[in-house]
Amino acid sequence: MFRHTPLRVAALALLAVAGIGYAFGASYFGLEILTEIAILAILVLALDMVAGFGGMVSLAHGALAGVGAYGYAMLQAQAGVAPPIALLGAIGLTGALAWAIGAVCARSHGIYFIMATLAFGQMAYSYIFETPVFGGDDGLGGISRLDLSVLGLDLMDSRNFALFCLAMVALAYAACAFVLRSGLGRSLSGVHESEQRMRALGLTVWRVKAHVFGLSGMIAGLSGALAAQHIMYVSPGLLSWTVSGEALVVVILGGLGTLVGPLVGAAFFVVLKHEVGAITPYWHLVTGLVLIAVVMSRANGIFGALEAWVGRRRAARQPQPLAKEVPGNA
């Protein structure tokens, strides 16, 4: 089950301070990067919730975020619905779709689960790519951002939008933590450890999985709807399976099943990509090698390694045995 250790609270506080501080100090392009990190962070929170705590390693989350983006674009730009309602609509739509995918895939495990989610993600991709109303390969434009002028905020301003996205990360994090600590989240942990045991206890396993997958999908949908507002344009590439693959990489890079880790991973990944990309067009090579190095180190990602190190230090100082954190069945 998810716990807020002092280390996690400290890391969260540090991330929040760094994010907000950077938002006020950054140049224009820095704000773009910050927004990109925030949007990716929301997506990987959603993915960590299912993969890290439920063992449901999904390759559909990129597509789910894409559905959220298209949902917002269609409602707001095509149907003319007010942005806040379009945002809620997109989140609801993605959640419903994710629930259905979760329900159907609930019986599959391991690689089969990964492939089943991939299949549904690809179906969504193909459907959107080939249906003319979605603009095909050329995508859809003319998307507006939320209007927060009642609060005196102009979201067309990059700084305001970056801060707004950071606030959304905080909201998504709170939602994930809330779900994981709720009865549903506890059931999910139980299912992750032993489905048979939970079934014997009278739990409907597929329903638990579907509910969590649906909630996770809503968060992914939020990420997508924010991406649509950020770029003010949607294209089928948003639903590509490589987006899901990258999100998974970020979760593992940060630390599976820690919620805080993926946030660190998102920041690390985006900054690495831009820094290396500024030097060479072969940034994939560097990212690939970093990924291999992190996994080879056998730590549970960057944050997992930090937790393990702090854990060892503490164990060295106080000799009594500590309850070992279960680092998600990676």
Binding site: L248, I252, L285, T287, G288, L289, L291, I292, M296
Partner: peptide, 9 residues
């Protein structure tokens, strides 16, 4: 994941 990194590299 290691093989995923290999794809990139």
């Amino acid at each position: 994941l290691v093989t995923f990194g290999l794809i990139f590299a």
